[in-house]
């Protein structure tokens, strides 16, 4: 029995969440395999002269009844831009499910989820799937300014939401790691999870390491295949060069060779 699949999905929603982030929801005819937070899909960008390879995106939501998946796509370059122009009714070819998931928190854990940019997608998925009562789940979302934030208010059912912005237009002013949850409460968490820009994840990892808290991050190295055959996406680790697409994208910070 195959464990990974290639299939065409039907686009059923494409909504702008702000100027650069889009929520794309897709549906397949076949039954979805089990998918966990941290895992990703590799998406074909059709009819593009410039984009040859697929583009990886984290899974944001799964509905096993309707066989739908959702992802949040941030416009970065030519592939993501093209993808956000897709219309309801178009088809999208996916390779899925790829990569390893975040370590599931145990029932008594208090967890902190840190998301920046499109890195919010796997964090919100993890919040929902953690199975923990809301009091044990804190999410902190960082962005440059209010306009760059994505409205995720409905996630307040699963977690306490905190915000930071560099200009102070939403939540506390500064980087996520300058937020009071970091400066005052970090040691009260059992697990910290982060996904976002490199600089943000490194800053989170540094704080977690200092506080001695378990911390996992999700890396976004450049990929060609996405399923472990090309060895292009490697990250130096304590176990040698590992593939981000199969050994990751989720890594414990103690495994990484980051200079933090």
């Amino acid at each position: 029995m195959p464990k990974k699949f290639v299939a065409d999905f039907n686009v059923i929603q494409n909504t702008a969440l702000n100027k650069t982030n889009f929520l794309i929801k897709i549906q397949t005819e076949s039954k979805l395999p089990g998918i966990l937070p941290g895992q990703f899909v590799n998406v074909e960008i059709k009819n593009s002269q410039e984009v040859f390879l697929r583009r990886p995106f984290s899974i944001f939501e799964v509905d096993y009844k309707l066989n739908t998946l959702a992802m949040i796509v941030k416009i970065l370059g030519k592939g993501s831009e093209k993808l956000t122009n897709i219309r309801v009714g178009d088809t999208l070819s996916l390779v899925y499910p790829l990569g390893k998931h975040f370590t599931k928190p145990s029932a008594s854990d208090k967890i902190l989820l840190v998301g920046g940019g499109s890195g919010v997608a796997p964090m919100l998925f993890l919040a929902k799937e953690s199975g923990l009562p809301k009091q044990q789940v804190d999410i902190i979302l960082g962005a440059r300014t209010q306009a760059d934030h994505i409205n995720v208010q409905h996630y307040s059912d699963f977690a306490t939401l905190h915000y930071s912005s560099e200009d102070g237009s939403l939540g506390e002013k500064g980087f996520v790691t300058q937020h009071s949850v970091f400066t005052q409460n970090l040691k009260t968490y059992d697990k910290v999870y982060a996904c976002g820009p490199d600089g943000m994840m490194k800053a989170v990892a540094r704080q977690a390491k200092l506080a001695g808290v378990f911390c996992e991050v999700s890396l976004e190295n450049l990929m060609a295949c996405g399923f472990g055959v090309c060895l292009c996406c490697i990250e130096p680790t304590t176990k040698g060069n590992l593939c981000v697409c199969t050994d990751g994208p989720v890594f414990n910070i103690n495994e990484l060779k980051w200079q933090i």
Binding site: Q49, E50, V51, F52, L53, N221, L222, M223, A224, C230, L231, C232, C233, I234, E235, P236, G240, N241
Partner: peptide, 21 residues
């Protein structure tokens, strides 16, 4: 055992890719 080259090892090009695994 060979660790291979450093990251980045891949660059997309028009109708193809470069690798330096």
């Amino acid at each position: 055992n060979r660790d291979g080259n450093e990251y980045p090892r891949m660059a997309e090009t028009a109708a193809g890719m470069l690798n330096a695994v």
